[in-house]
Write a protein that binds this DNA or RNA. Sequence first.
RNA 1: GCCCGCGUAGCUCAAUGGACAGAGCGCCUGACUUCGAAUCAGUAGGUUGGGGGUUCGAAUCCCUCCGCGGGUACCA
Length: 606
Amino acid sequence: MFDQERQNIETRITAFCQQHDIPLAALKWLPIPFAGEWGISTSFFQTAADEARAGRGQGLPVPQRAGQIAEQVRDFLGQPAGISRIEATKGYLNLYFVTGEYARRVVDTVLASGPDFGRGAAKNERVMVEYAQPNTHHSFHIGHFRNTILGESLARLVDFAGFDTVRASYPGDLGLGVITVLWAYDKFYKGREPQDIHERGQWLLKIYAEATNLLTAKENETPEETAQREAHEAERRELYRKWDAGDPEIRQLWLETREWSLEELRDILTMMDVKIDVWFFESDVDEPSKKIVDELIRRGIAEDERPTGGPVIVKIDEKLGLAKEKYRTAVILRSDGTTLYLTKDLALAGQKFDEFHVDRSVYVVDNRQSLHFQQAFAILKLWGFPQAEKCFHLAYGFVSLPEGAMSARRGRVVLFKEVYDEAIQRVLAEIAEKNPEMPAGQRETVAKQIGLGAMAYAMLSVDNNKDIIFDINEALNFDGRTGPYIQNAHVRANSILKKASITNDQLQGTSPNFDYELTKHEIDLIEQVSRFPAAVEQAALEYRPLVMATYAYELANAFHSFYHAAPVIQAEQADVREARLRLVAAARQTIANALRLLGIQAPEIM
RNA sequence: GCCCGCGUAGCUCAAUGGACAGAGCGCCUGACUUCGAAUCAGUAGGUUGGGGGUUCGAAUCCCUCCGCGGGUACCA
């Protein structure tokens, strides 16, 4: 936030080093890691080490020489504008800000920018984020939730950081799993579906588990059972054949049942406030992907082994001249001419580049598919797409249960909707206990905001490449490092401002005066607020919502501490009261912005 | 076999080359006639899986070993 001042000081340090023939290494600036004072810091270890290596050292050990340079620089800089004091210690140079002046500038900037505080400059690059890819004919489970909240948060981050952002969803709507549900529905359950869209989704899941059971060979089957199972299997195969041939009746049934799943998906996305820009279906890229295989064969990238009964393959390692097996050999078309997951992903990527002109493409998909994406990106590169370099698989650890992996086949899944309903119940109970005055009409809305906030934060506050063993009591914890903790900070800030009956216009009208002796808690809070733009930038460039999740907690924590330690409305001096009111407003705004980037709502009361 | 990921406090996790490895939960102490206690302040808890190396400086980078998970030619 104080780039200009930093620039000026950097220029002067560079000049000093040139004068004294010191080979200055690139300056890295960090916040001073000691609470209570506020400033920036850099060190001269690298410079001293470079100097020694070049044989130009003074014969001193590196740490000592670094300390010496730091002291000389301190003396040379004197008292720059906006800096209250400079300290050279243990090879580090610490620059402490004139707190009042910087505090005012931070708070002014936040209040003037409002919801745009922290927004990055336009990057002139288009990013597509692909997430929310559940299979149809199933229900949305807690693993899909991790995927969706991760993708949505990332999309909001890159958008806010200044990228032109396109949100894409790619539901899997074909394959044997889908056909299995169609078969069982048609044979046993036709017309008996529940009307509620979530009940219907769960019902489809039950049918799938049941059908899989019917089609799986058992130990000690009687001959009758075996015959029965084989008859079922033959029916399923026949159904697949008819679907593949485009049988109108089967296609109609397929579209109708697919729509049930999509209705459920859209409803959940609405609850999560996710707005997908582009829908790709696997079935849409099935045919186009076959043409790509032809092209890859023509250009000598793929090898067609079909004449000898084999599939179409790409020997990736060989094509790249790698000795060790890394990408291996990928099959891109079955020997019977039907497509694979990889085939369709090639076609999809082609569409993203050609039709949507994306510069970067991020795939939010679980880490079991890492090899798949490495192969896909390698083939795209061989195919000649320059954007292949900017394709990124955001792999995340899959969500499992204490009793093992979730399995739709076995019906062993934790559904998003079950957890969501439970979350609302728990929040309502909490409200009844903690805030009995809350009007009945508001409770449901607030319960949704808090319940979803807890669920989202539980997913986002863990690094994406870590597996999660889902525990509902952990996910719906409202104390400590959680979504509700951050939301509560927003509510408290809001409550103070409401009680002071101060309007936004009044807040913006005058500039706060922070010329009194600021407490440690005020300085900490202001520092956290000022860090927000950097946190946005880092999270977006590293594709890591976790960075924002961690930041949001630290900001809320600074606010809660401030809240207890520093009276606002009850401040004795009028100027302190005014300044703190504006600081509270700035904190409220920053918390709201941070929550928004995590896909979490910022409630007014709770 | 090979490839990828992970291993940090009792538990769940941060910190990805910088100053003393930080939080939450749990344990124990305190703070509500006070701007909302879904909160705050404090105590205790660590040879960062083992060993070696690079570096002024390593949880972080390199090598090696151990353990766990995932993947590994016609599933997605």
